[in-house]
Amino acid sequence: MTLDLDTIPDSDAPASGGPGIALSDLPSVRPGRRGVLKGVALSGMTLGATALTWGSAAAPAVAETSPSGLDGWDRNDCSDAYPRGYREQRDNTGQYRNIAGACFGGSAIGSDNCDADGWHRADSVGSTTYRPVSGSCSGKNAWKWTVDGVTYRCSDGRTTEPVFWIWTRSYLSICRAAV
């Protein structure tokens, strides 16, 4: 036999007490059995639904950090610096130069500017120096961007190279690495 809340009759028993002095001007309403059972059922469903969410809460996002301590974003945008997104630029160096662009800015974009961990390199080759920087993306060094289902890290840096025997030029360079 199943329990149907609409088939439970209301109680017609007289109330065993009246309202206090503070509530004497309010009309007296006595809850019926059906109303109490509905309240108990709703309370149980609410408690059960709440308990289900306790174990399934996602872990808080943590910003990624490079091996050298550079801060990066934990999400796939740099909306603080580019609230409307940006127009991705194709790489002009490295292994991704013949596919759709992912990063933005810089005179040199590509995997040639990356270290083995996929962050902007911090070394020198001959008289060319690579240095990661933070600040182009709201104080972070890197952000992630997804293109054609692949997520890339775009890590900012500066490259300094000789132009003439006494002059050098320094420019923003971007490391693009698949993550």
Score class of each variant (00 low, 15 high):
70 L>E: 01
114 C>Y: 01
107 S>N: 13
77 D>K: 10
77 D>S: 15
69 G>K: 09
111 S>G: 07
88 E>Y: 02
74 D>C: 09
103 C>F: 00
84 R>F: 12
113 N>F: 03
67 P>W: 08
78 C>M: 14
116 A>S: 14
115 D>C: 12
83 P>L: 13
66 S>Q: 01
91 D>W: 03
90 R>G: 10
62 V>Y: 07
115 D>E: 09
105 G>V: 09
81 A>G: 10
93 T>H: 11
95 Q>D: 14
95 Q>T: 15
98 N>R: 12
98 N>Q: 11
109 I>Y: 04
100 A>W: 04
105 G>Q: 07
103 C>Y: 02
85 G>Q: 11
63 A>N: 15
87 R>M: 13
62 V>I: 15
64 E>W: 07
92 N>P: 07
112 D>H: 13
113 N>Q: 15
109 I>P: 03
61 A>D: 12
83 P>T: 12
90 R>F: 04
117 D>S: 12
95 Q>A: 13
120 H>E: 00
106 G>V: 11
91 D>P: 00
112 D>T: 14
114 C>E: 05
91 D>K: 08
119 W>I: 00
61 A>K: 14
114 C>P: 01
120 H>W: 00
99 I>V: 13
114 C>M: 03
89 Q>A: 09
90 R>S: 12
72 G>T: 01
72 G>Y: 05
62 V>N: 10
65 T>Y: 06
120 H>Q: 03
88 E>S: 10
61 A>G: 13
103 C>L: 01
102 A>G: 00
82 Y>D: 04
68 S>N: 01
110 G>Q: 12
66 S>I: 02
70 L>V: 05
63 A>L: 06
114 C>I: 02
110 G>E: 06
64 E>S: 09
114 C>F: 01
88 E>N: 07
118 G>H: 01
114 C>A: 04
87 R>L: 12
82 Y>M: 10
86 Y>C: 04
103 C>W: 02
110 G>M: 05
91 D>F: 04
